[in-house]
Amino acid sequence: MPKYAMVIDQRRCVACMACVVSCKKENEVPPEHFRTRVLEMVEGEFPKLRMELRSELCNHCDNPPCVANCPTGASYKREEDGLVLLKKYRCVGCKACLAACPYDARYINPDKGFADKCTFCEHRIKEGKEPACVATCIGKSRIFGDMDDAKSPVRVALQGAHAEVLLKHAGTQPRVYYIKKFSKPE
């Protein structure tokens, strides 16, 4: 049973948005809607500044409030690999999952009305490919793999690195890990 996860090495991100566009095209995300985003944060005062770049997506939480709150079972956590997925045919568009997700990872498809979000490109992993955003990540900031496999890119990336998850206190147990390091103001 693979345990899929992503590592975002923020040191490598260049805020190029390749992931954003590629994800949209791979997954037919409608105009003005997104499954992933990129944050640029700058702190300090000129000229002592530091920058943090961070891409965000669904965390495929191990304790996913979106799934708990979904009244129809449309949102579910797939047992064999832990992906948090969506059965569109079941979704009523009640938006409870949107309200429940602390990461604002979801949106409602404007034409069809169902909730939608990142699937870790489940259809591509099935074919042995990397998720679209990972495949095109210019900075190789997005790293994907199986946490149970010591040789997988995610495990290699995490080795000796200090990784954090977003909003740990939300208790969601995310599967997207962030390695961050600020640029030093000098």
């Binding site: 390749a18 590629s22 095209k25 791979e26 037919e28 679209a132 495949a135």
Partner: peptide, 24 residues
């Protein structure tokens, strides 16, 4: 429906930038 980088190509190495991905 999608544009991807050609892994065999030295200028893209399997990756396209946001602009290239939005070529359509």
């Amino acid at each position: 429906v999608k544009l991807e980088g050609n892994p065999a190509h030295p200028n893209s190495r399997g990756k396209l930038c946001a602009r290239g991905s939005g070529g359509m």
